[in-house]
Design a protein around this nucleic acid. Structure first.
Ligand SMILES: [Mn+2]
Ligand SMILES: [Mn+2]
Ligand SMILES: [Mn+2]
Ligand SMILES: [Mn+2]
Lengths: 217, 217
DNA sequence: ACAATGTTTTAGATGTGTCTAAAAAAAAAG
DNA sequence: CTTTTTTTTTAGACACATCTAAAACATTGT
């Protein structure tokens, strides 16, 4: 059985692998986990010895099948718990991530699967992220980043790629919630900001915001 | 914020204090926590320094108000989660304890209170144990142990004081579930066993079983 | 090609929670 | 009131997860 720490590393490496699709390096992990590079090296050695990833000195790291399987089970738990908190316990979408960080480490397959059933096998969590099923299968709905939209085009906001409380509160304040139809009015080449329109109201958003907003066309 | 280990000690000391109503000693804690006496001594020193209990070398230990408050909040979480698993996720009463041992260490007051509300402020958990409210108030329903009943008397089984899977499975197998009306048919002085009657069927139970069964008359 | 820069690993330290073995204190027995 | 037994504490060790500082390696720029 893995420790909380080991699970957090596995999950983070999985996320970085799927996001960056390049070999994941020590400093990147260190930054995300908020630990020093030396601590990361120690942990990578440990996880390699446990046969969850392939690690070669100075060459970065890659999850093997067992590692991916574990990562998916943690992601599954995280997103199911977020959905539970949001759907059943009246939490806001900006409050669920922190608590799910704890709940994702509860060990009980039966609990996970019963929770899944209780929630009616949800496909996505409150941030629009897909929830892996009991076999680790994860549905991949095609989404495009708001930055890809051309002037005049519209899309439906269906996924947010930043779960932090601050960011989500900002979105809520500006009516940028899931399901909202967003139209691109203008692009500013200088700072990559956008003028967008939601329900006939127009306003500007920065690149930092744009890059976390994903749509279906 | 307390560690899981510290919380487990606090909870166990609380349970021993309320059960034994005598000063709790090192070996007793060691046995319950399944650790060595030397480890217990170390932890008691630490908890004393954190001002959660009064500890004097060789004199045993006693929770102070802050310690009791924390103990009650952990007991509250444990029993609320057991109730959730039982009521909402279709777990059996013998399956909930182990998982609640993990869930009781999730830190979020809002989560605890929302869960309480979601479950409709339950008064007792699946084993009939009272659930402390948000202020730490715990209702004390008068119960008597089955061993106190005289021959010919009856009582309703409303609380079980042993959450282990094995014991609870034994009870289920013998129709000894909460709410059952139990009549004492005969007492065996030799081994303190009882012949009891449930729904017109009679059978014998041992002292080990009897001492964990609590009734209202 | 090699010096400067950046990245990663090693060495050695710390805090937590555990253990075994031995010493100290308390309780029980004679 | 001693001696024996039991309980509790101390001393010293270890695994885990972390850190800082220094060394080793890799990459980049001239
Ligand atoms: Mn986590
Ligand atoms: Mn999420
Ligand atoms: Mn329990
Ligand atoms: Mn219980």
């Amino acid at each position: 059985m893995l420790t909380k720490s080991e699970e957090n590393y596995i999950k983070e490496i999985y996320t970085l692998e799927t996001e960056h699709r390049t070999d994941v390096n020590t400093n990147l992990i260190a930054e995300k986990i908020e630990a020093k590079a030396s601590s990361v090296t120690d942990m990578l050695k440990k996880l390699a010895k446990k046969d969850l990833l392939v690690y070669q000195k100075y060459k970065g790291v890659k999850l093997n099948n067992e590692g991916k399987k574990i990562a998916l089970s943690i992601v599954r738990k995280h997103r199911l718990w977020e959905t539970f908190l949001f759907e059943k316990l009246n939490f806001e979408w900006d409050e669920v991530h922190e608590i799910a960080e704890q709940l994702e480490h509860i060990h009980s397959e039966k609990l996970t699967n019963q929770l899944d059933a209780f929630l009616n096998y949800p496909k996505v969590d409150p941030h629009g992220d897909p929830i892996p099923d009991a076999n680790g299968k994860i549905s991949t709905i095609k989404t495009i980043c708001l930055s890809q939209l051309k002037i005049g085009e519209t899309g439906v906001f269906i996924e947010v790629k930043n779960d932090s409380e601050k960011f989500l509160k900002y979105l809520t304040k500006n009516n940028l919630t899931l399901g909202t139809i967003i139209k691109v009015i203008d692009k500013e080449e200088f700072d990559n900001s956008l003028k967008i329109e939601i329900e006939n109201k127009q306003f500007n958003i920065s690149e930092d915001v744009i890059k976390n907003i994903y749509l279906k066309k």
